[in-house]
């Protein structure tokens, strides 16, 4: 089989914040009743969150760990939808495990890995500033905190992002607009264009 390659294949840009395309990321969209036990169990297993307290992330939150060793997580998307993150090469197996856990529960789980692109913006408050230029979201440290997840728009396209514990911001968008989003981020992170509000 041919090699799978992400939309921009780890493209990078360094301005006053670092922008990087994160490469392939397994993603499963899961819709259904988020209080249903099989659905919670399935989402946590598929998202590699087995050892935690066994709950769904709360409204507007995400539990994600992206590192060299770990690319797992569960993100709250809407009252009836979560996004399950897992390593790209394990997504089919995790989807199968999830579907098995769901059993006859009324739910929908689909592998959407190849329909998405993921970016990381790092640089602490600089990263906040890059996002604040593009999204109608209050990015001040008092309002947007690590662990929070937000679906919104970036300039003209839909996007979602969360912040991890080291205040890096991860952005998910559709693969078809990956170049557009990367260009936006590059312009917003241009050296010398800091506003310095945070």
């Amino acid at each position: 089989m041919s090699d799978a390659i992400s939309a921009l294949n780890h493209a990078q840009f360094t301005g006053f914040a670092e922008v990087e395309e994160c490469g392939l990321q397994g993603m499963i969209t899961l819709r259904g009743d988020l209080t249903s036990k099989p659905l919670i169990a399935g989402a946590r297993t598929a998202g590699g969150r087995d050892g935690r307290d066994g709950k769904m992330p709360k409204m507007g939150m995400a539990e994600v760990a992206i590192s060299v060793a770990d690319r797992n997580g569960v993100c709250w998307m809407s009252p009836d939808e979560v996004l399950v993150l897992c390593p790209y090469d394990k997504v089919e197996a995790q989807l199968m495990a999830l579907t098995t856990k769901l059993g006859k529960t009324h739910a929908l789980a689909v592998n959407v890995s190849d329909a998405r692109a993921m970016f990381r913006v790092s640089g602490g408050t600089a990263a906040r500033e890059v996002l604040a230029k593009l999204c109608p979201v209050d990015m001040s440290p008092g309002a947007f905190k690590p662990g929070m997840f937000r679906r919104t728009r970036m300039a003209q396209v839909a996007a979602a992002f969360w912040m991890d514990d080291s205040e890096d911001i991860y952005i998910i968008c559709f693969r078809s607009v990956a170049q557009y989003v990367f260009d936006l981020l590059k312009i917003a992170a241009q050296p010398g264009s800091q506003v310095g509000v945070y």
Partner: peptide, 12 residues
């Protein structure tokens, strides 16, 4: 009222 987000008009 569904996702608790306080957003401005262009998001809606």
């Amino acid at each position: 009222p569904y996702c608790g987000v306080k957003g401005e008009e262009t998001e809606f």
